[in-house]
Design a protein around this nucleic acid. Structure first.
Lengths: 181, 181
DNA sequence: GTCTATAATGCGATAGAC
DNA sequence: GTCTATCGCATTATAGAC
């Protein structure tokens, strides 16, 4: 059921998908959907929660490691790519339907997680340039994931996306060094 | 008026913004909005058209240049960044509201332009890996633009985003060479 | 757990006065 | 060019039978 909703949200967006659409896809009525999720926002929350919990734990792990050991950020990128691949369809949806994350039920959590994820890549007290590279890296990974053929094996994707992310972080450090000079 | 619509679309998405919302923002009634745009889709088209025409011309220019002279793609990235900066708020909206581009009035144009823009970066007959890097580059530029402070001067942004895009294209060529070996 | 039926609201869109 | 008023319809959500 969450699966059907996710599929429709990906195609038409959260606002562009009605509970009727979801019910039709499942071959049931709207009322049946409302039995499981009392409101549409509750469905959104249920869809978002497991993925958010996972990335939150991922970032928390990174926050506990000493800054020196994660300066390169390559380990973090690898873990993040793994997370993207585990929640592939979810990530594809979110990257292209940011408006859904402005809903009251999820906006706080979403903002906090995005900020912490960016901080994991470029540090907590980042300046404008760092934030740009961090955001660009996250968007690039999502963009690559979206463009990948649906039948692309996870192993291959993991390798390519990790390289892509690591390459961007290397570029960021180069730009930061240039700025310091 | 298009300005007010664009602002609301950026915040809540095309589907999440009603004509009432737009009318309220302008301090007029829905009917007044309908005088200028007979349907909501017509408003969408009017919002999209100038930017699409511009990027289409940009890509067409690139298509006329011999492939050898644009193999590096740096010139193309620079021109694309200029385009993003000229339509900054529009680009921020589109990057995060893909559902709007699935509307019948714009879906064909949008798909064609996205494909031609990616082809400009990595060639017309691109394999899966090339398409991933091309999509990642475009998404990264949009992501960087979104993360930039609203008061960041265009000159500075142009420089940083161009470097970001060029860095990604360099990474793509590196990955392509590795794959050939 | 799913159904039918319906309430309540908001939506895109139109008609006609000013 | 903007208004008031309204239509028809889809939407979220609820009530109650099975």
């Amino acid at each position: 059921m969450l699966d059907a909703a996710l599929e429709l949200f990906t195609a038409h967006g959260f606002e562009g998908t009605s509970l009727q659409d979801i019910a039709d896809r499942l071959g049931v009525t709207k009322a049946a959907v409302y039995y499981h999720f009392h409101t549409k926002d509750e469905l959104l929350r249920a869809l978002v929660e497991p993925a958010f919990a996972e990335v939150s734990a991922l970032v928390a792990e990174g926050e506990e490691r000493p800054a020196s050991s994660r300066r390169a950020g390559v380990v973090e990128v690898g873990r993040y790519v793994d997370y993207l691949l585990r929640h592939r369809r979810f990530a594809v949806w979110l990257a292209r339907d940011a408006a859904a994350m402005t809903r009251d039920v999820v906006v706080q959590q979403a903002t906090e997680i995005r900020e912490r994820t960016e901080a994991m890549l470029v540090g907590a007290d980042a300046d404008a340039l760092s934030r740009i590279w961090a955001a660009a890296t996250l968007q690039a990974l999502a963009g690559g994931l979206i463009a990948a053929p649906a039948d692309a094996p996870d192993e291959w994707l993991r390798e390519e996306l990790t390289e892509l992310g690591a390459h961007l972080l290397a570029g960021y450090r180069k730009a930061a060094r240039r700025r310091e000079a």
